[in-house]
Design a protein around this nucleic acid. Structure first.
Length: 677
DNA sequence: GCAAGGTC
């Protein structure tokens, strides 16, 4: 019996009854023996097999692919070796095989590859276990009702892999080949998820670049305790200057306003929902400015240390069977959390604890929660993310906070102004989530309708409309989630790859010229790859393969035809496409080497990184007239900090090393900021 | 040197 991962293998064993453990290559196998059979439950670790090209060379199109052990095709998959070897040993012993991986396309592929590559290709000897949660009762029932080999799902899953390979590898190669035709080299990539992700970002970037702001005016009434804003039937913005001037001249000099209306609204502010991975990533980004990929890897570490539950979950639900009380009692023993844990436990003495639940579900895992186990030494960021997870766990038990909003309408010469306030009357769950509650608290003086109020002054402010907001690393991950592109485990990685390729930079995200040019090129020559429709189409095809209405080979044949046409067209215009890409690459590289203005008084040049055979240094663009130079560190990537040193006036740089040892400094080695270096 | 999807 093959489980999707070590944890699940253990759960399968627990559900099946008495078991013993046999270790092989450092991997735990679970042995369950009955009167007439012996079951070995062995874990995979996700995709133990992966696609690789079987033909030679880097040309495209490439359509010849086959499955190979992942540790052989990927440098970072060394840890899979022992699992692979164990599966090989266990598969040799078996007469029959059960695929007990997650019941979805990927699970079907994971189990199928292990069994077919290492066990048997005889499908009559393969069974499929179908379960939707990992509870013992579900697993037991699934085991008692083993189904035949799931040909449809497996074929659909295998096809999904191959189609993604076809589209991703080939179009990526086409881009790189185009650049190489122009005698340059740059790693470029795109794919079914990367493509649309870049496209959303590029569309937004163009909207921002093309945005033309409209001016408008606002008028404020200032009192010693608050300010109120002019509005005309709810509209606070005045679009013509003459109109604003007119109103202003009629109220200017008035020193009193009358309270014409007070509206009080009491409302509940509900507690948040339990964290799924995206929710945690969003909150870690807004609270600590930690990017989604880092949060994911921190969460994985915390999970491996048994401090939190499985983090790669879509679920926003915390079922009672996780044992609320037990976890809360353990948290109570942690110094930092004693008070909050007590508060939650006190809430209901009758054991009827319940939590707020979100809408999203996940078949395999509940929402993220702390196990209660006492953490040892955590890094600074680990501590932050852990604290956030614990406090969110407390918060979901809380009662809604009681809030009150107050809108006060003031009148001056027939013109109306609004002052608004929001205050918390009862904190409830706010106390459990401190210090992560972010709500507005602004109080207004207690006044009554008809009362007169002194005015300090009126203010007329000119403003302008703002361009659309940029995506952040987090909001683009949410956007992908909303559109069902990628999965919980891959979205942050996809965004990270766009940074690696230099298609995007900074956060909030700015699309580079290279990114814009790539998006434009793909839109023109391979529009399917930047369209989210490709994913929808894949989903439909997988559905029909699953139902055995279409065969894997038919689907692949069709993709080879369609993609082949696109790629031929691309290839014909390779040189021009490449020239355009090269211009964008050069422009970006040129921008990247510019560090800041030359610090010589009489020089208007720009200091930039100069590379030589022996290394690199900083020189001035006006090097005919200006001999200003500075040394640079030999190792690490140097980028401009976009700032000038207060002490010496030279540009500040950011040095990032592969070791993860990053630092900032100005480029003058004699600057007093380095006195104690 | 290229994807997307699992996972440690």
């Amino acid at each position: 019996m093959v489980g999707e991962k070590p944890n699940v293998a253990s759960k399968l064993a627990q559900a099946l009854g008495n078991y013993s453990i046999e270790e092989n290559h450092g991997v735990k196998n679970y042995i369950v023996e009955t009167d007439d059979e012996k079951i070995i439950i062995a874990p995979a670790v996700g995709h133990i097999f992966n696609l690789e090209q079987t033909s030679e060379g880097w040309d495209y199109p490439v359509f010849e692919v086959d499955w190979a052990p992942t540790f052989e095709t990927s440098d970072s998959a060394d840890y899979m070796k022992k699992y692979y070897r164990n599966l090989r040993d266990q598969c040799e012993k078996a007469d029959e095989y059960i695929n007990a991986c997650d019941f979805d396309l990927e699970g079907s592929v994971i189990g199928d590859r292990v069994i077919k590559e290492l066990g048997t290709t005889d499908e009559s000897r393969i069974r499929r276990m179908k379960f939707s949660t990992l509870t013992p009762s579900d697993l037991e029932e699934a085991f008692d009702n083993l189904e035949d080999f799931d040909k449809g799902m497996t074929e659909a899953g295998l096809t999904r892999h191959i189609l993604d390979f076809y589209y991703g590898i080939n179009v990526s190669r086409a881009l790189m080949q185009a650049v190489r035709e122009n005698d340059r080299y740059k790693t470029l990539s795109t794919g079914r998820v990367q493509g649309p992700a870049l496209n959303f970002l590029a569309e937004r970037e163009r909207e921002i670049q093309e945005f033309e702001p409209d001016p408008y005016w606002e008028i404020f009434l200032h009192n010693s305790e608050f300010r109120a804003k002019f509005h005309d039937d709810g509209d606070e913005r005045i679009w013509e200057e003459e109109v604003a001037d007119g109103i202003f001249s009629e109220i200017e000099g008035e020193d009193e306003a009358e309270v014409s209306n007070i509206k009080i609204n009491n409302y509940s502010h509900k507690p948040p929902v339990p964290f799924n991975l995206t929710g945690l990533q969003k909150e870690a980004s807004s609270q600590f400015n930690i990017n989604p990929k880092t949060t994911q890897s921190i969460a994985q570490d915390l999970y491996e240390d048994s401090l939190i539950s499985y983090p790669r979950t879509e679920s926003q639900k915390l079922p009672p069977k996780i044992g609320y009380k037990n976890i809360l009692n353990k948290l109570k023993n942690q110094e930092n959390y004693t008070e909050k844990a007590k508060k939650v436990l006190k809430k209901d003495k009758s054991d009827n604890l319940y939590t707020k639940q979100g809408k999203k579900e996940d078949d395999a895992h509940p929402a993220i929660y702390p196990t209660g186990q006492n953490p040892g030494n955590l890094s600074k960021n680990e501590r932050k993310v852990y604290d956030l997870i614990v406090k969110r766990f407390f918060a979901v038990f809380g009662k809604p906070a009681k809030r009150q909003s107050l809108t006060m309408t003031l009148e001056v010469n027939g013109y109306t102004f609004n002052a608004k306030s929001k205050v918390t009357k009862k904190r409830n769950w706010f106390d459990l989530y401190d210090p992560y509650v972010k709500v507005e608290e602004a109080e207004l003086p207690e006044l009554e309708e008809g009362e007169k109020l002194p005015v300090d002054e009126f203010e007329q402010a000119e403003k302008e409309t703002q361009p659309p907001r940029r995506f952040s690393q987090t909001s683009i991950v949410s956007e992908l989630e909303k559109r069902n592109l990628g999965t919980k485990a891959t979205r942050a990685q996809v965004v990270d790859r766009l940074y690696d390729r230099e298609f995007i930079k900074d956060d909030p995200i700015v699309v580079t010229d290279l990114g814009l040019t790539i998006a434009e090129t793909l839109e023109e020559y391979s529009p399917e790859i930047v369209s989210e429709e490709l994913t929808r189409e894949f989903e439909e095809r997988m559905e029909s393969i699953k139902n055995q209405e279409e065969s894997k080979e038919e689907a692949l044949e069709r993709a080879r035809d369609e993609l082949g046409e696109t790629l031929r067209n691309f290839k014909e215009q390779e040189k021009e496409i490449g020239a355009k890409l090269v211009r964008a690459i050069d422009k970006y590289r040129d921008q990247k080497r510019k560090l800041g203005p030359c610090d010589r008084d009489d020089c208007d040049g720009t200091l930039q990184i100069i590379r030589t055979d022996n290394g690199r240094f900083v020189g001035c663009t006006e090097y005919d007239d200006c001999e200003n130079t500075y040394p640079l560190p030999n190792n690490g990537e140097v980028t401009s900090q976009g700032e000038i040193c207060d002490e010496c006036g030279t540009p500040k740089i950011h040095v990032s090393r592969k070791s993860g040892n990053n630092y900032e400094m100005c480029i003058d080695p004699d600057c007093s900021t380095k006195d104690d270096w």
